[in-house]
């Protein structure tokens, strides 16, 4: 798991390795599991918050499936250029 920009600061970490319960198989499940940690996770990942998610460096949606060893990144909408 990787976190960038505002989310990296809010969570106080830029990366971590997590062991997920077996029933979590997609991005929506992972996001709900992270919210279950309470604040700041619940606050920053609340529905309606502008959060983007990439799986193995490709943009993902809630239904994107997850497998062992995947690299999942959470970040705000991009502001380069």
């Amino acid at each position: 798991m990787l976190y960038f920009a505002r989310l990296r600061e809010a969570f106080g970490r830029e990366r971590e390795r997590v062991e997920l319960p077996g029933e979590i198989r997609d991005v929506a499940g992972l996001t709900a599991w992270l919210r279950g940690r309470g604040d700041p996770w619940a606050r920053e990942l609340a529905s309606g918050k502008p959060v983007r998610i990439a799986v193995n460096q490709d943009m993902a949606g809630g239904a994107t499936p997850l497998a062992d060893g995947d690299e999942v990144a959470f970040f705000p909408p991009v502001t380069g250029g």
Binding site: F4, F75, V78, T79, G80, G81
Partner: peptide
């Protein structure tokens, strides 16, 4: 440029007299 600004993972943080702030994504982009 239009695609880069909305699809490439870069984030800007500004230092101003009021402190630092992350730049918000722009709907015009």
């Amino acid at each position: 440029m239009d695609y880069l600004k909305t699809r490439a993972p870069f984030w800007k943080k500004e230092k101003t007299p009021d402190g630092t702030r992350w730049v918000d994504a722009c709907t015009a982009d």
